[in-house]
Each structure stands twice: as C-alpha cells, then as structure tokens.
C-alpha cells in the first residue's frame, strides 16, 4: 500500500494579473522509497512539497483530486488532524539552517519541542541520542547552543535531528544541502540517507541537482513549469526520453569532456500543455 498518493495537485497564487498556477496537476505515488523531484527554480517542486504538508503560504491555495497520506485524506484535514500528522508522522528538512531554526531558542529546546508536540515525552535523552545519530561529536554542547553558534553543516544536522527525532513515516527534504559548502554536502547527505534507509521511511528529495538526486533516490520526477514532464527510475536517467530531461543531463559538466560552447536548455511551449 502506498504511503502517499497525490493526484492532480494544483497550487495557485492570486496575483494582480489574475491567478497564477505554480503547480499544475502533479500526480504520483510514494511508498517507503526515496523519490527525487528535480527541476529548475520556479518549477513548482518546493510548492509541491509544501502542499503535501498543508503549508502552502497564504494567499496560495492547493487543490487536488486525491491527496492521501496513509489512508488519511489531507485535502480538508482539520487543524487538529494536521497537528497530529506534522512532526510525528511527516516532516520536512528545509534549505538553510540559518533561517529555518529559531534564532532565540537553543537547539535543545527546539528538539524537545518537536518531541513534545508529537505525543512523545520531552525526553532529553532521546534528543541527545538523535544528535549523536546525526554524527554530532559533542551533542551536549550543541544541545545548549543557539543556532548562530553553529556552522551551516552543524545547523543542518541539528535540523535533520529535529525532523527525525519523532520517527516520522515521511520526510520531505527541500534542497537540504543547497545552502551548504560542497565539502559538507556529501557528509550531510550521507547522514540523511543512512537514517532514512535504516528507518525505512518514505523520502521526497527535492533538488535542482540531477546527479545528486539520481545517486540518492530510487525514482525521479522531473518537473517543468509546474508539471511532471517525466518520471523514471534513477538508474535509467541516462535513458531519459523527454527533451527537457535530456537538456538538463547535457548541462552537467563532465570532467573529461570540455564542451564549448556550453550547452543551453531548450524550452518548448508545447511542454506546458
């Protein structure tokens, strides 16, 4: 049985020029697997992730023919249902720990808060164990630290700890390493990957980095202008059919092949249909 099924998801924002649809009919199923969503900025991948959590920023509106998480209809879920799901059963790692952590609360308090509102007790031991699980060498210190006292990589590990401490079934990772140094990226990803694998969670990994996604996910959705233009197994990425995916692939720099002039993405108005 699938963990999450999304059918014809649409996210619309009202603008002065009339409603603007940023996600236009996204459909997919997710089991306890790792699904990558790639696309350039503005392709609607982040808004897809947020809509699943019911966090479409107002005045935006999300609609869908079907939006079910573990058999629960999310479309008209009450605030109470959302509270029982968010944190404890589904959570999200965001892009930049500099902004996604509350600057005036210690990491420890924020971790314990995640535990407390997911029905668990406010156990410090559990929080500390989680900090160790994200390979923080001195969890006691990080527990007492404020976000600004941590480096980006450390902060993102703390963020991952905060989102996984409640042992959710589904994790949405929205560009979790884009704000980090390249050297730290791999480390943080490996930690995230290991934890998701161990716990058999469902993962939606949102990124603009095609290669990264294909190496960490089982399946990839390629989004363009609010639509899924191609869905394929990560292994078969090289066999991608859609010209947009092929274009993205061509843009990846290759170490032994100096392409000049650099390839550019071609766009076709027909893809929008």
């Amino acid at each position: 049985m699938s963990l999450l099924s999304v059918e014809n998801l649409r996210v619309t924002f009202p603008t002065r020029q009339g409603p603007s649809e940023v996600v236009r009919g996204v459909t997919f199923e997710l089991g306890r697997e790792r699904l990558g969503i790639v696309g350039e900025s503005g392709s609607g991948k982040s808004q897809t992730g947020r809509a699943i959590l019911g966090l479409t920023p107002p005045p935006g509106k999300a609609t869908a023919d079907r939006l079910e998480f573990d058999g629960i209809d999310l479309r008209n879920a009450s605030a109470r249902t959302w509270r029982s799901l968010r944190g404890s059963r589904m959570s999200m790692v965001m892009q930049d720990p500099k902004y996604s952590l509350n600057p005036v609360m210690t990491i420890g308090r924020q971790l314990i808060e995640a535990l407390r509102y997911s029905g668990g007790g406010a156990a410090k031991a559990e929080a500390m164990a989680m900090l160790e699980a994200v390979q923080i060498r001195d969890p006691e210190r990080v527990f007492r630290a404020y976000p600004h006292e941590l480096s980006g990589g450390m902060g993102q590990r703390a963020m991952i700890a905060m989102m996984l401490v409640t042992k959710p079934d589904l994790l949405i990772a929205d560009e979790p390493t884009s704000a980090l140094d390249v050297t730290v990226q791999v480390e943080v990803l490996r930690i995230l990957d290991g934890l998701v694998r161990d716990r058999g969670m469902g993962l939606i990994f949102i990124s603009h980095d095609l290669r990264l996604v294909s190496s960490f996910c089982d399946r990839v959705l390629v989004m363009y202008a609010g639509r899924v233009v191609e869905e394929l197994d990560a292994r078969d990425l090289s066999k991608a059919q859609h010209p947009y995916t092929r274009g993205l692939m061509n843009c990846l720099p290759k170490i032994d092949d100096d392409q000049r002039p650099l390839p550019v993405l071609e766009r076709d108005a027909a893809w929008l249909e």
Partner: peptide
C-alpha cells in the same frame, strides 16, 4: 513570514504557541 515559523509548523507546534512563543519572542527584540 520567516522560515523558522514554517519549521515550527512542520514540527506540529500549535498555532497559538507559534504566535506567542516563537514569533513574539523574536519580535520582542
């Protein structure tokens, strides 16, 4: 409008606490 508010929502923190603890504590500065 800050990201950490979204984080708190993702964690399942009740709206009242988000407003009066998370946001107000920062706005108090």
């Amino acid at each position: 409008g800050q990201e950490y508010i979204t984080t708190a929502r993702v964690k399942g923190v009740p709206e009242r606490r988000i407003i009066w603890v998370h946001a107000l504590r920062n706005a108090a500065v």
